[in-house]
């Protein structure tokens, strides 16, 4: 076991982890932050996506010992005081949620995108979530949700849009 320091959603943790512990298992099992999901355990589905130092990463493929001193944001950190992040609100408004298993992952990919690029093109939006598989939605309403927030960043007001 090795001790690492980790900041997760603004809180500092000192954790004892095994050399082969993955970040996903650590945040789910040791921190009880279960919003990140294990959909494949091989880095192929994106359900385990979290943000590390501003970048979206696959936590199922990331060794916890490599995260010493890093800052992590999980889906639970997106709405810390019960308020919804604009992306979460847009996900609800645009009916972009079905089974919900992939939702935390693509929301974090989208947050990382918009934090670095507040005015993405539609192609940039699609590329940002290309690593987040969704079997339910066909991605259209997900793209609509992200684009609506990006549009608001550009001063374009997009309201609740239900077709």
């Amino acid at each position: 076991m090795k001790t690492i320091m980790l900041t997760v959603n603004g809180e500092a943790y000192e954790l004892a982890v095994a050399p082969n512990d993955m970040l996903l298992d650590v945040i789910r099992d040791k921190l009880d932050l279960t919003g990140a999901k294990k959909g494949c355990d091989t880095g192929a589905c994106g359900a385990c996506t979290v943000i590390m130092d501003g970048e979206p990463i696959l936590s199922c493929m990331t060794l916890a010992v490599r995260c010493h001193g890093r800052e992590i944001t999980t889906i639970e950190g997106l709405a810390p005081r019960g308020e919804l992040h604009p992306l979460q609100q847009a996900a609800i408004d645009h009916n972009a949620v079905q089974c919900g298993f992939c939702t935390p992952g693509w929301l974090l990919s989208a947050k990382a995108l918009l934090d670095g690029n507040p005015h993405p093109s539609q192609e940039e939006v699609r590329t940002a979530i290309a690593g987040n598989l969704c079997r339910c939605t066909g991605y259209k309403k997900i793209e609509d949700a992200i684009s609506a927030v990006a549009g608001r960043n550009q001063g374009v007001v997009k309201g609740k849009n239900r077709d």
Partner: peptide
Amino acid sequence: DRSDAKSKATG
């Protein structure tokens, strides 16, 4: 709004 949307969007 779907009755499950908020709990799913918040993880």
